[in-house]
Nucleic acid binder design. Structure first.
Lengths: 210, 210
DNA sequence: TTTTTTCTGTTGCATAAGCTACATATTATG
DNA sequence: CATAATATGTAGCTTATGCAACAGAAAAAA
């Protein structure tokens, strides 16, 4: 992480009487937002988990990003160029702040501490986003399903500081995230178990290699 | 593009007596930079073409990004997390500016117009970068070689405003960019020709569909 | 120019991965 | 609690893709 700025902490400790932000709550399964051209939304996930999902013309579903607490999303980060549908779906109860980027980047006339602090930290936050995207690209350029799985596990393992962890995504969603067929992924998981590379109890993964 | 800020124009028209920047020239085939941890370089390609290339432990070569005039690169945009090698290779004669991000983001004490203008436009430039990365992810999440090729062609076609265009990468490099085997890609190109989807004369592509 | 190197184009073979289908387990919901 | 809905786990079959190998074309270097 470039940034040590914890959005959620700031939000609850700093005043915000800003008229440029909307705060909404969503329950599991609801659509938080649909990406549309021209609008330039910047959203902050204060609480919960959500997925940025793309549906293409062939009916394939791809989880473009898995968003957790403090994640930023919205059209600022993803210009709609193709005619694919881009949705953000709540995976649990979510609290979200909505800004329009052009309004956000101007200093707040209401002396809103949160708004101004956010703008100040925006470059770091955006650079963090870039790092995530590059990690995602590294994952997707893995040539085989096995390599994708191993790299994904390794990332989570590093993040959790443990060789044992619960998957943050369902296996179905993981397949959509790695952009592979689910049943083929399940088969590869079984082979990884047979090869004593990983162990797997339900959605709990144990890495067995060094 | 978010930004209408043309870096190269600004560089040649504005004063820059900055001690925080290095300008270097490279000839084809030379290594412009190697990504290393901790340093936080931000580089600008003023002239030429270059590739950001990753070599993984299996010996696979991946073109992470194809950089052309006015492109930004460097560790700011790609934190070195895995132990893969990341290099930027000049594909033609290149002129490059090198900054260290932490120095760049402070206002210039030398009253350097270019430096200060650059900082001012940095958010837009970084957002452009994000858009590119998302496009790359969209490309890599295409499930088949055929879909990757068609999407890539469609992107170039849109950029060039023409259904006919010369590939900006060699076919060998294109395979590394799409993260597929070269011979398999060649085979798929032949099938696309047979299906009258595209025509191909050497490295010139003609899209035949609507 | 000649020589060397790199790139393009093609093939046969082996295998990874997609697709379909279904049974069971787990999790939501009335 | 019962029932519906969704997720996990597995198998057979088919196809796409990777790999190895090589010939000819094009580009770079001597």
């Amino acid at each position: 992480m470039n940034s040590d700025f914890n959005i959620e902490n700031f939000y609850y400790n700093f005043s915000c009487n800003c008229n440029k932000v909307q705060k909404k709550t969503f329950s599991k399964g609801q659509i938080i937002t649909t990406y549309i051209q021209k609008r330039n939304q910047l959203c902050i996930l204060l609480r919960g988990n959500a997925d940025l999902v793309r549906y293409d013309l062939n009916g394939n579903r791809t989880i473009v990003e898995h968003l957790s607490k403090n994640a930023l999303f919205g059209e600022v980060f993803y210009k709609v160029t193709t005619n694919n549908e881009l949705l953000v779906e709540a995976k649990s109860k979510c609290t979200v702040l909505f800004y329009i980027y052009n309004q956000l980047k101007e200093p707040c006339t209401h002396g809103c501490e949160f708004h101004n602090t956010l703008v100040e930290h925006l470059p770091e936050l955006i650079l963090d986003k870039i790092t995530e995207l590059n990690t995602r690209i590294e994952l997707l350029t893995q040539r085989t399903t096995r390599d994708k799985l191993l790299m994904y596990f390794s990332l989570i393992s590093t993040r959790k500081l443990s060789k044992t962890f619960e998957l943050p995504l369902s296996l179905t969603d993981l397949a959509d995230y790695l952009s592979v067929d689910r049943s083929a992924m399940m088969r590869e998981l079984k082979l990884l178990k047979e090869d004593k590379m990983v162990d797997k109890i339900g959605n709990r993964i144990i890495l067995l290699y060094e």
